[in-house]
Structure formats: structure tokens, C-alpha cells
Design a protein around this nucleic acid. Sequence first.
DNA 1: AGTGAAATGACCATAAT
DNA 2: ATTATGGTCATTTCACT
Lengths: 158, 158
Amino acid sequence: MQRPLSPSDRRILRILQSDGRITNSALAEKVGLAASPCLRRLKALEEDGVIEGYRAMVNRKVLGFGVEAFVFIKLEQSEPGWRTRLVERLKGYEEVIACHALAGEIDLLVHAVARDIESFGEFTMNRLLTLPGVADVRSSFVLSNIKPMAPIPVPDHS
Amino acid sequence: MQRPLSPSDRRILRILQSDGRITNSALAEKVGLAASPCLRRLKALEEDGVIEGYRAMVNRKVLGFGVEAFVFIKLEQSEPGWRTRLVERLKGYEEVIACHALAGEIDLLVHAVARDIESFGEFTMNRLLTLPGVADVRSSFVLSNIKPMAPIPVPDHS
DNA sequence: AGTGAAATGACCATAAT
DNA sequence: ATTATGGTCATTTCACT
């Protein structure tokens, strides 16, 4: 189902996770490959879905989002259809920068940004609590990003 | 303290958050600029720290990490020094792909990956619970990534 | 290895302040 | 005048075959 990763592939993945915009030729040099085979490997990794995309990390505060928070949501037990629609609505909110379904006490973990505390309040009150199927909503503001979005470790073998 | 963002800057940020490896010339075309001024703006955004970096998004399962989890940590009240050292240790763990300090019930929210449930257990037992200053550790496995790492919205004005 | 495309820097034009 | 914007062109470097 998945071609095994060569040592070069692994080096490529390590480098690209910390510098996603490096040129292929600079990448090739770091990896210890000629440009041409390096590019072929990179394309293959993209093609195979090992690399799912590239993203610029933007400073949220510069964009006017002074508040970052996590919202812990418990759902009511209800027909499956409700849950699907709830999740679709949630995904549609642009304040939601990530959302995970969890096992255990909390059903949904929502990572959100907002301009300020007031607009975050508006968001939770008007857009989260009003979703049908939501039993409980608790929010915690992020005080500091201790470790922001670190790379996934790339072991020498899978 | 921060140069205001031009409409072109905002378009650049929107595009680069969903395609961080787009060539400058393709970016320029989408933005509606010539390549040269587009590149100048891009460099300035990096220089000013508006863009904090670029990252390839890698499929964790391909790398052998079948398990993704959030760990909710409560700390004991203790001297500030302990907390700093605890946080440093936490940052050093490569299983930890993100970590936030939160206000409220939970003090630290840790986002982690592991090869399987057993090795996640080893991680929580031997590396988290043993940290001095930790009062309580609770873990929830991620069942699904409902909305994985969406862009931060870029308003037309800040 | 070669060729077409992209990146990059020097320099100019225009408009708003 | 100064600042901020964008454009053109020439050169080097890169991507890709």
C-alpha cells in the first residue's frame, strides 16, 4: 500500500518540515543528492500523499487575532445525522483553525482564534452553544505557545 | 511597531497559507502583481515576522505514528523554577508536536503522536507522569481530524 | 547536459501625504 | 520631498526533460 521510504526520502521530509520553501537545489545539497533525483523523490512523496501540502505559518496577532483558545465540547447522544451536520457547521467557521474528534470525556476539541475576548464570547455563545446536539461547551484561553507546531519526527525506519 | 498590511500583502498571506510552496511568479499572477514587487513583499513579510516559516505537512501514519492524542496536564503549585524546567523537558520530547499553556482547569495541553497505544502508554507513564510538578495527567486519543490545520483567516483590514 | 522558466536586483514611474 | 506602491529589464539561478 505504501512504498517504503528511503533514507533520502526521510532526510527530505525532515528538512521540508522545517523549511517548506527551500529550493530543490538547496534541498538536494542538504540531502546529499544531485538535484534531479532529489526532485524526483520530492514529487513522488507529494504524489504518494506522504507530503500532504505546504503551509506558511502566519503570526495571528499581526492579523488582529489577539485571542487563541481551545474549546472542549461534549455532545448529546443523538441520531448520527445530527452529528454530521454539527461537524459540518463547525468546519465552516473560519474562527476554527483546527478541530479533532476525541475519545473519552470530551467529544470535540476545537482550536480557535478571535479578535478579542468579546468576539470570542460572541463566537461561543452564538455559534457554538446554539449548535443542535451540543451538550456542554468549555473554553480555555491559550496563555502561551510553549511548543508551536513542531515537526513530526522522522525515524530512520518505519 | 508593525507596518500596516497592504491588500497585496493580505492576498499573499491567504495564498501562501494554503500553498506554501507556490512559485513566486505564480503567486504574483494570482495576486495581480509583477514578480518583482511580489517577491519584495514576500521577503518583507518574512523579515517582519508576519510569516514565521514554511512547513511541509507530512502524513503521520506513513511515518509509523498510528496514534495521535491530546494530554491534559494539571500542575502542582510549586516554585516557578520547577515549572520552567518541566516545560523545557516537555518541549524536548519529540513525541510532543505541540504544547500550549492554558488558563483554567487544565494548565498544559499537549498534542502528541506515538507509534501505537503501547508506546503512547510508555510515553505518558515514563516521561510525563514522572516529571516533577505534574499533579494530574489525562489523555484522549484523536479519533478523527475533523478540520486539520486550517489557515488563519486574513481579514481585509486589521 | 540543455533549455525554458523562475528568482533576484538595479532602476524607473506614479500617486498620495 | 518623502513614502509607498508597482513596473521593466538584465542577469543569475533553478526546474525539469
